[in-house]
């Protein structure tokens, strides 16, 4: 464990807490893409298959349980909570995430470190996480009005990935033969997807204007 990874995990935790607080307290999920939330639930469900078989550390197990619980409860809130679901704009959130899931599954079957069920599922979860934010970014560009909680949520998610890249650089420098192209490339792609959002988010923050993404 290093400071980059710990702060990355904490930033990731913050992002889901911000989202849960927004949905739970103001009972609204306006501007949030259910498709992205479903993709994240899928990411954690396929990545943490070994939660009860391979014990890494107490921290690791607790964080996995938190991410599983929060991602599934956010999906539940947006789908079934009688008040929250009313604020979900399904007309705008139309990204066909199946078109993301299938290519990731095929790629995971072809490009992986070991052709076993667990390994393919783990690799699949990496690829899905890399593209999971796309429906949310598309929705933000459509709905124009980005409330600052949603903006903070996306910003924290991007920051968590950026910190993970620093973590991989640190581990590469300190642990010999720590080379994992699949993890690194999918993580890099994911972080790059946030690049333009970061640009507009920081600009809007600097000029103290509402965050507007270009059409």
């Amino acid at each position: 464990m290093n400071i980059f990874r710990l702060s990355g995990d904490m930033t990731h935790l913050m992002s889901v807490i911000v989202l849960l607080l927004k949905i739970h307290t103001i009972k609204s999920c306006a501007g949030i893409s259910l498709k992205t939330q479903e993709l994240y639930a899928l990411v954690f469900a396929t990545r943490y298959l070994d939660i009860f078989t391979d014990f890494v550390s107490v921290y690791n197990t607790i964080m996995k349980l938190i991410f599983l619980a929060t991602s599934f409860s956010i999906v539940w809130y947006m789908r079934h909570h009688k008040i929250v679901r009313r604020s979900y704009d399904k007309e705008q959130d139309t990204f066909r995430h199946l078109f993301l899931i299938l290519p990731c599954l095929i790629l995971a079957l072809v490009v992986n470190e070991k052709f076993t069920f667990k390994e393919v599922m783990w690799t699949f979860s990496l690829y899905v996480e890399a593209v999971a934010i796309l429906p949310q970014l598309v929705l933000l560009q459509r709905t124009k009005n980005i409330d600052n909680l949603t903006g903070q949520y996306v910003f924290l998610l991007g920051a968590y990935r950026a910190l993970y890249i620093l973590n991989w650089i640190y581990r590469y420098l300190t642990e010999k033969h720590f080379v994992h192209w699949i993890t690194w490339i999918s993580g890099l792609v994911q972080t790059l997807l946030y690049a333009d959002f970061f640009y507009y988010y920081i600009n809007s923050w600097k000029n103290n204007v509402r965050l507007q993404l270009p059409a």
Binding site: H12, V56, N60, E113, W122, E175, F178
Partner: peptide, 10 residues
């Protein structure tokens, strides 16, 4: 420790 992969990461 788990084999040197990123599996020990979240």
């Amino acid at each position: 420790t788990p084999d040197q992969t990123t599996k020990d990461e979240l």
